[in-house]
């Protein structure tokens, strides 16, 4: 299985991940190498096997619906790149 630079650009867009144009080729080569490793999995028939998502196979624990968090707004705002009036700022989304 081999990936083209075009494939890499598509995946990078899905991940909203900027990659340098000059690196695309090497990512394509690396990912193709990794995918070759993955193809070993197809040698094994797993039709009757239940997928395992989690080592304990447990259901998510539930808790009572109580407010436990204290208000940390100022703290969280203080480490944000750009804020105004207690809100996170991003570039304009709607014209």
């Amino acid at each position: 299985m081999s990936l083209t630079t075009n494939d890499v650009n598509k995946i990078a867009h899905l991940a909203r991940l900027g990659i340098d144009a000059q690196d695309t080729e090497s990512y394509a080569k690396d990912l193709s190498g990794i995918l070759d490793l993955m193809t070993q999995m197809s040698e094994l028939n797993t039709d009757a096997v239940e997928p395992m998502a989690h080592p304990m196979d447990q259901a998510q624990r539930l808790r009572a619906d109580n407010i436990t968090e204290i208000n940390n707004r100022d703290k969280f705002m203080s480490i944000a790149p750009q804020t105004e009036d207690g809100l996170f700022l991003v570039p304009k989304v709607i014209e």
């Binding site: 900027g18 990659i19 480490i79 750009q82």
Partner: peptide
Amino acid sequence: DGVRFGHRCENPVDLTDLYTRSRG
């Protein structure tokens, strides 16, 4: 994603640019 904490790129032109360049 460059919004709440961590690295943010300089002068993003739109939201996609903000995500993509901050992460890149």
